[in-house]
Design a binder for these strands. Structure first.
Lengths: 136, 136
DNA sequence: GTAAGTACGCACGGAAAGGTAAGTGCCGAA
DNA sequence: TTCGGCACTTACCTTTCCGTGCGTACTTAC
């Protein structure tokens, strides 16, 4: 039983290559995963679920992020096709960021994870405390 | 509409503190999130969904991970209460790692995310290619 | 006239992540 | 008898992350 990963069942090899396997180094899915699960990637995706926002809106909303990392992370996510960037060529720059359909999907998954952690924080902290005080 | 984050609705402040808010620096949920979404944390959690495994089993399964990072990441996850470590005091060391009930839950969420990325890799790569060749 | 805001890019530097190699103590296999 | 495996730990060093500060081109506000 339970060798779900080891035995990734007969799926035509071609299927395996097409689909991507996170357990294999070299697989581009590792890259995408890195962007999505990066410190600021998670926060930005969830923040963008609230709808289209401007650069400095995001900067204020996320709190703690530097302009450099905001720009860089947005570029990663844009390159992966998760974020759409619309620049209005006006005099004080005006750029709007939003999630693409693909981005809405990942952001959803990420939000579920983040929400779970937030909600279960008490239980996690309790487990940690129990370990520190007396695991016997 | 959609100011879901900005307006985290009236939840008694105490509730807010208890539950944790990823958008706030200083919140311990950031720490947990860091462990769970770390490069190897993701892989290990998903790998452990396959059941109890030994140190070197995990080392081989994940592939690319060094012993140092394997040990360290397992310690993080253990401290957060996601992984249970059982050491049999036998002559050649025998240690088994498995997910706790809490761990099974997070790992589930993480797996959903990883699976989504693997499955949608083609679409992501396509989006990337489109951007490179001719975004027009 | 000066300050502030907008959306970045660039360069510097410290901190952290993470790989490599070696050591540990004991055993079974070649 | 030397080698390799188990489950780590430690030291060292490279790579990457990421914050800080400065510059931009222009406008509105004071």
């Amino acid at each position: 039983m339970n060798d779900r990963i080891a035995a990734t069942p007969p799926a035509t090899l071609a299927e395996l290559l097409r689909r991507g396997n996170v357990f294999a180094e070299q697989c581009p899915s590792r890259e995408v995963l890195k962007h999505v699960t990066s410190r600021w990637g998670v926060l930005l995706l969830v923040a963008l679920l609230a709808g289209t926002q401007r650069f400095s809106d995001l900067r204020r909303k996320v709190g703690g992020i530097s302009e450099k990392m905001l720009a860089q992370t947005l570029q990663w996510l844009e390159a992966d096709g998760f974020v759409a960037r619309i620049a209005h060529p006006v005099v004080p720059p005006h750029v709007e960021y939003s999630l693409t359909p693909l981005g809405i999907e990942v952001a959803g998954k990420v939000e579920v994870l983040a929400d779970w952690i937030e909600f279960n924080l008490p239980a996690i902290m309790a487990a940690r405390a129990a370990r520190e005080s007396g695991p016997d």
